[in-house]
Computed example of a mutant assay.
Amino acid sequence: MKPRQTKTIPQKDLFQSQLVDIINLNHPLVRLANIIDWNQLDNELGRHFSTVGAAALPTRLMVGLLYLQHLHNLSDEMVLEQWLESPYYQYFCGETFFQHDFPCHPTSLVKWRKRLGEEGCEWLLTQTIQAGLKLKVIKPASLKRVVVDTTVQEKNITFPTDAKLYNKARQQLTQVAKEQNITLRQTYDKACRELMPKIGRYG
């Protein structure tokens, strides 16, 4: 279902201060948050969601997390941990009061990226550029030339050892046999779960 709306600003709370009362309003993230047209983002990205089912997480929260993630080169887990500690992150993502619980599960970011697809992500990039132009942190002349960064970023990819390849082939063959209703005398699932960690120690 389409994303939920960001909570409206409530009346003053006697027992807690609003984020705007405790943060520096000249902080770059605060200035950027005030420049971005969040309603436009919500309307534009809302078409990537269906009108049935449970409501998705608020657009400002998810777009804000994705932006912060790429701005500081953070993993899905790390950006949520930083959000939990930073009032500036929380303000940027639409919170009014400081929150002490995670706003979502890391897998929610994965689902959002898949939902937006390449087209949605490219549109988000254009909005980021427009916001940068409004803040005058990006000069129009800098957009006339494209600089390609070929730096290789480390990824958490397991090395394909012989044992891992054999085990993967075994799992795939077992799955095919199951789909074809072929009964195997032994699948070696339990044995491999015990042996694979031991084999890894000798790599």
Results as ranks from 00 to 15, higher is better:
P87W: 00
E194Y: 11
V176G: 01
N167E: 15
V147W: 04
K2G: 07
C121F: 03
Q127T: 02
D21F: 02
K139A: 15
I199C: 05
S75M: 06
E122P: 00
V30A: 12
N181I: 09
M62I: 14
Q175P: 02
V63E: 03
I182H: 15
Q90D: 01
L14F: 12
K144F: 09
R4C: 09
W38E: 01
F102H: 05
Q5I: 12
D37C: 04
R115Q: 13
H48A: 12
Y202R: 14
P160R: 08
E44H: 09
D13M: 08
H70G: 09
K139E: 14
P106V: 05
G200W: 03
N34W: 02
M1F: 04
D149Q: 10
K155C: 09
A131T: 08
L84Y: 01
P28S: 07
R4N: 10
N24C: 07
V63F: 01
R115G: 02
C192I: 14
R170S: 14
A56H: 11
A54H: 13
P140D: 07
V137K: 01
Q130A: 14
I199V: 13
L19R: 00
Q175M: 10
D37F: 05
H72T: 03
K168F: 08
K111H: 12
F97W: 13
K198C: 09
T150S: 10
